[in-house]
Every structure is written in C-alpha cells, then in structure tokens.
Nucleic acid binder design. Sequence first.
DNA 1: CCTATAATTTCGGTGTGCCGAAAATACGTG
DNA 2: CACGTATTTTCGGCACACCGAAATTATAGG
Lengths: 226, 226
Amino acid sequence: MQERSAIASSATEDYVKVIYSHTEWQPEPITSSVLAARLGLAPSSVTEMVKKLAAAGLATHVPYGAVTLTSEGRSLALRMLRRHRLIETWLVESFGYGWDEVHDEAEVLEHAVSDRFLEAIAGKLGHPLRDPHGDPIPRADGSVEQPDAVLLADAPDGFSGPVVRISDRDPALLQYLGDQGFALDSVVTVVERRPFGGALAVRLDGAGFDLGDEATRAVWLGAGSS
Amino acid sequence: MQERSAIASSATEDYVKVIYSHTEWQPEPITSSVLAARLGLAPSSVTEMVKKLAAAGLATHVPYGAVTLTSEGRSLALRMLRRHRLIETWLVESFGYGWDEVHDEAEVLEHAVSDRFLEAIAGKLGHPLRDPHGDPIPRADGSVEQPDAVLLADAPDGFSGPVVRISDRDPALLQYLGDQGFALDSVVTVVERRPFGGALAVRLDGAGFDLGDEATRAVWLGAGSS
DNA sequence: CCTATAATTTCGGTGTGCCGAAAATACGTG
DNA sequence: CACGTATTTTCGGCACACCGAAATTATAGG
C-alpha cells in the first residue's frame, strides 16, 4: 500500500498539474521532454522527479516512454486546476486584473491558500464553472464539464461559432487577442484559409483579420454552423 | 558592497520578521535560543541561518551573543509585517475569519502575494494602520505608528484603559480572551493584584475575572487613568 | 577566581529539487 | 537491418534549510 495522500510539495503539484493539463488539449500522454519544456526545467530533473511521482503513487512511467497519471494523481491535478482557475477568475472579477495578467499570481497562490479560503472565494464568485480564458473549473468533488469545441485551426471555411476557450499559455498572445476584440462568447467566422500553411482569415464583430498558426491553435470555437 | 536586495527566501523573510517582532515588545535584541523557539527550529539551524543573514547584509551577529537587524534587514522585516498584518486584517474583514484563525493563513500568504495584490487589498481596506489584534501595520514606505501602551501585567491597581493590542502569538489565548468579551477598544480596569505572583483581577464590561500571568502579559492597555 | 551549568556553535549528515555531462535507448531512413 | 540522430536516463554535484551530537564559550555562584 502506498502512502495515503501525504501532503504534496509545490513541485509535485506543478508536475501533476502540467501532466494533466496536457491531456486536456491532446489525447496522447505527455513525454519527458515536453514536460521539461512546459516546466522550464532540464530533462534530467524531470526524469528524476517523475520517478518520485511514481513512487508516491501519483503517476506511472514507462522508461523512455510516456508519463501518465494514476487516479490519485489525476485527482490531485484536478484539485490544483480548480485552485488555479478559481484564483484566476477571482483576480479578474474582484481585483481588476486583465486576463493576460493573472497567470503568474495564480501560479503562486494556488500552492498557498487553504481549502477554507479557496471555497470562500468560490462561494463569493457563485461557484463558476469556467475561468476568464474559458478553461473549465473542476468542482470540489473532482468532476469537470469539458466543453466540446473545435480548434480554430481545425475549423472549416465558413464555420462560425462563439469563442469558448483561449489558451492562457502565452500572456502576450492573450493580450494581443484581447486588443483585437477577442473575448469569451464573441462570435468568430472563418473566412478563408490561405494556401501553403498560411494565415487564417477570420471575421469578428464585422472586422476581418488574419491569424497566424500560433493564434489559431490557441482559440476554440463552440457549437456553431458551417 | 553587499548583494543589493536579492530576492529573499521564505525562510529569510521569516527569520527577519521574528527578529524584528521581538524588539516590538522588548527592547533587548533577541538571542539565538529565543529565535529558535519562536521559529520552532533547532538552535543549530538558527546559528547557521543567522550567519547567512549576516552575509546577506540583513543582520549582524556577535558570536555567542545577540542578533540585530541592519537597516536593510529592518526594512525587509517591516515589509513582511505589513504583509502579514494587512492579510490578517483582510481575512477578518472580508472573509469572516475570527481573530484567532487568521495567523496560519497569513503566515503562508505573506510570502506568496505580489506587491500589486497586497496594495490592492490595502486599498480595499482603506489603508488601515492596525490589524485585528491591534498590531500596527507599517506603511508601504516603512514608517510605523507605535501606539504607546502599558502591559496589563505592569498596570497599577485601579488603572483603567482601552485594550489597544493583544498578542497574536497564542491562538488559544486569543480565543479564550475573545470568549470573555475582550476586543480592541473595550475598556479594562485593574481591580487588584493577588499577592505572591497570583492572578490579576480585572473588570471588563461590568464583569470581573482573574487573569493569569500569560494573559496579562499578552494584553496592552492604552492611555487611561489610575 | 574558578567551576558547574546553560547557551551557542561546529560538524557531519539528511531530504528535496535542481543542473550538466555522459551513457543508454529508441527511432526514422536509407 | 543497421546506423545516425534525437530522446531519455544515469551519474556526480550543488544549494538550501534543516537536524542531533559533540565541542566550545559564557556566566553565575561559591
């Protein structure tokens, strides 16, 4: 029998969160090198730490292969995502942070606040189910509403639908998209895909512009029409 | 020339805060063993860490003697006290925490929140100058209003004055005093000092009771009358 | 002033989490 | 299928902050 839910270190919480987050966007499990890149660490550090996660019963690891979470690891990850996203929502709603400014603050606070405190802010916010970027906020019991959505990069020409989610990975991109008028629920229409891997022409609030590869792979559109 | 204000570790912040706090109550500088006791650490750990504080230009240390802060150390300490006390105030005002419940949460958050965040809550609270225990909150520029007050243990018989400060060191004591009706600004009158180091009889809101040594050395009364 | 006791420091050691360099393994291409 | 490249792991090391045991220094009482 493994150690039953010993208190996880801040590092452990970060690893687990990143491992889980990856599967939110991509079905394939994450590899060491991607994990290292996301965490900004050397690959060797990741290998070592993943071994510890496995020893703690939070992850399983095929040597030279992928890293997967156990159900215990997944539940810790969901707990951390709930914390991160509730805190982000709260910073925007109650403190006037912009959606491009919340990430770093939430990154620190998610490890620091108590459950009591967290649930207090959840209550104040009316137990929201999505954060300022449209990311779903797991409930305290670990259940999540995964919105079905199509990546803007994958949307067919003519497709039109509301923005339901925007990746918060790159604050600069968030700021740029915000400046262009992108917001949750604003309706985007795919006008034309420029040939040879070029930009994607879209229309938003009547105005049209081109989006590069990075941007179109960071925006999800909800149920719409072709 | 020393390292100019490199970012202090959480441990450093704690040491400096405790060293400073001690001088708030007692004029003599703190010794290693008291520091160790306050921090809940082994004396040997403290010796070692104090050496690092000295190397960082935050403290000076006479071997086998006292630990004192440099002006740089003092300013870091004041910064941490401002954080701690603002957060405590905020937890009470905005989250319904009791004054005996805020300490642990604040202890963690004080190392985690950004300056931007801290000043946002300071603004929300109207830039208060004292926390729920009556402890003075340093201003952002490092200045502090030290209320002049007399320790209940030192007050003469017949002395009467408002509670201006209660030590937050022992949550259980805070809870007890709260239950007895003690609050900031409630007026306490010293009735009689029982002989042979006995309890102190006081009167509060018409009711009278005896307080032991520990309690009378945790309560300060403001300008009053004998 | 000298000694017993108390406070402090030194010393060797621990756990966590990180790194770079070198070795091991996997994988695509010819 | 064999070989070169890319990925992953192993290994030795480091910084931080902690510990207990042993050695050192301070201090109070006789």
